[in-house]
Design a protein around this nucleic acid. Structure first.
Lengths: 223, 223
DNA sequence: CGTTTAATTGAAGTTCATCAATGAGAGTGG
DNA sequence: CCACTCTCATTGATGAACTTCAATTAAACG
């Protein structure tokens, strides 16, 4: 999940009538807290997420952490650059992935359809990261948090009667590290949105978006 | 040019003995200030930079601008996502590019070597942007400016007698928008490095790095 | 040489981080 | 079931870093 407003993602399920992928794509389940890969691991696979929530992080020597992306069903994660991974990928909620051999992206051998899907995912990722860059560098705390809620709710929110309910599977720390803020600022900003009547909380891990228009406005700095 | 310390880039020149690219790669010169493409343009080409310096930017509705990347010789720029470009690409110094049809990335028809080069460039870009994300979100002004100078000098600096001379082809405003800072902060930070004896200036557009170790330390927050 | 644009420097203001304390929720064991 | 603990989230007070506004200096260009 990248904070993009343009993330039309290609589902993993092939269209009916299409020949299924030949072989080396394997399903695999991942329990909460387990790592898909770690920094330094040889990058042999690319993962297509079918269930669960994953977190892609980089850490600086001094411990400063950046969450590069959250991976949700439909996302593809773990694009290799060179032989080793430069980030950690952990399931923050039990899930499942389809494992593609790294090969499937490089060579044309194997299933052409898969190759195309992986390639397009890579290009989409570049675009999404450009949005993320913009957000990190140029948006205020309020805009960041609002953008995050809007994007997340587009992916996993359920709307009913003008109210959108959206789980926050990740901790405040994860959100903070994704947005380039501190835990405290994230919390204060959520409180601010709550007191303004834009959102409400069920538990700390479930937002109710009461005024989506206002949230979108906040995300764009129109205030 | 992305602020990466790991940007081993593949040169455009094919290894001797390799069959030259079949056809639709065209050379093209671009004068300073000219656009390679603009936001909204149909993305028909991917550009391999052979000379000059390019700037890739995104702009928000309200005018806030983010420089996504600087393109230097050896870089490949303009990866498409969907049909239209989501950013502007302008030459800030007269240059030249090899124009590849967008096609060359999608299909395998045509020159396999080119396809691989483009694909690897895309993967490298994802990795580089992850570093850039980290920098924007987690580094101080000093670290950002120092990182920028280190990375730029690795690409276009000339070392002699322990002194590295490096051109800054872009304006302070461009640097600021690349690093997520203001012009003033960039200027003040450069002054600070200058007064600390780490760098010196010839003109405003040429840095002399007097103490590379100190600069690298500053880039990593060891201070 | 004068005009314009870019870069530097200064002073004041804001936003966010840091430090510190409190509160809420989940799991354990009595 | 109720303390107890541990973790996570919230809230408050203070301070630092960077921005903003404003002025000055330097460089580029006709």
């Amino acid at each position: 999940m990248y904070v993009t407003l343009s993330s039309a993602f290609t589902p993993a399920t092939a269209a009916p009538g299409v020949v299924p992928a030949p072989v080396p794509a394997q399903r695999r389940t991942v329990s909460a807290g387990a790592h898909l890969f770690r920094e330094g691991d040889i990058a042999t696979n690319i993962y297509e997420i079918t269930a669960g929530v994953f977190r892609l992080t980089r850490v600086l020597d001094d411990g400063r952490r950046q969450v590069i992306a959250f991976g949700l069903p439909g996302d593809i994660i773990g694009f290799p650059n060179g032989t080793a991974h430069h980030s950690d990928c952990e399931a923050i909620q039990a899930g499942a992935v389809i494992t593609h051999r790294r090969h499937a992206l490089n060579t044309l051998e194997g299933d052409h359809d898969t190759h195309q899907r992986l390639l397009h995912a890579a290009l989409r990722e570049i675009s999404a990261m450009q949005d993320h860059l913009m957000m990190l560098a140029r948006k205020s705390a309020l805009e960041k948090v609002a953008s995050f809620l809007v994007t997340l709710s587009e992916r996993i929110g359920k709307s009913r009667e003008g109210l959108t309910r959206c789980a926050l599977p990740m901790s405040r720390a994860d959100i903070a590290d994704f947005l380039g803020l501190t835990i405290e600022t994230v919390s204060r900003t959520l409180t601010r949105l709550r007191k303004a009547g834009v959102i409400a909380f069920d538990r700390a891990q479930t937002v109710l978006i009461k005024d989506m228009d206002a949230l979108v406005s906040a995300a764009q700095g129109r205030d």
